[in-house]
Design a protein around this nucleic acid. Structure first.
Lengths: 135, 135
DNA sequence: ATAGATGCAAACGATTTGCAGTCTG
DNA sequence: CAGACTGCAAATCGTTTGCATCTAT
């Protein structure tokens, strides 16, 4: 558990560096890529430590985690606003969309079935205007 | 490639059996579980073949594929009716829900961003009444 | 005989864990 | 000094692939 606030200087530094890497990227990054990037930035850190840090950060809710189609775990800096993604299946362009309608629907369905603390994940996949035109 | 329609008796049998297993389950199943279930039903088939069959079926769009939180690939019979799942995070109970609201929202978002042929997947995760009471 | 299908075992790649050495308070 | 942190190497685990064999045509 990382419940206790006692964190070493080194760990704090690591977290800050990881945060910087994530913030510098608009896309989701896997532990391996984060590690490679840190190494490129001359941050001495082991791959294992990156994995462990990412687990902790995800558990704390400091980063968002998902999986790619190939099954690797990827993370992104936790954006303050709750939103969903509309991705182009051809060029992988991502548009962030917000959905008050979805949020309400989710709540309604949850109540309807007596479920509590319901989270939802929505992924939209389509063909963007550019790629559609390029057909 | 499974592009040619030439399929052996055995392969046809395998597909039928896999289809039966999927149809008998309302939830997503991984290749390993499908294999175990087939074995339990005395269907002689190797794990490798199940993996290969699932890949082919998914590619053809005969089954829906996703990944669990732990990264395993899971499949479900492509249901004729489009619906979503509300799963209990404690007991894993699954409730199928339909959502005209979602379907409309999806279409609206797609049009709004000029995206075409938009698919959507929605997963709801919460605590069911029973598990909430057992707290 | 020939092309595809099958399955065992080995290979893989991402992630996790055992454990000994290091750092921090 | 005691406990937390680190990282190497080895272990896992789901999945894929090499290859020899079997099947149906």
């Amino acid at each position: 558990m990382t419940t206790d606030g006692a964190r070493s200087r080194r760990q704090i530094r690591h977290r800050a560096e990881i945060g910087a890497v994530l913030r510098d990227s608009s896309e989701f990054l896997g532990a391996q890529r984060i590690h490679a990037e840190l190494r490129r930035r001359d941050v001495p850190i082991g791959l294992t430590t990156v994995y462990r840090a990412m687990q902790a950060l995800a558990e704390e809710g400091a980063v968002d985690a998902t999986r790619t189609a190939t099954g690797e775990q990827v993370y992104r800096y936790c954006s303050p606003r709750h939103h969903h993604h509309l991705m182009c299946r051809d060029c992988a362009r991502v548009v962030e969309v917000e959905g008050p309608a979805i949020e309400q629907w989710t709540t309604a369905i949850a109540r309807q079935h007596g479920f509590a603390q319901v989270n939802h994940s929505v992924e939209l996949l389509g063909t963007c205007p550019d790629c559609a035109a390029a057909r």
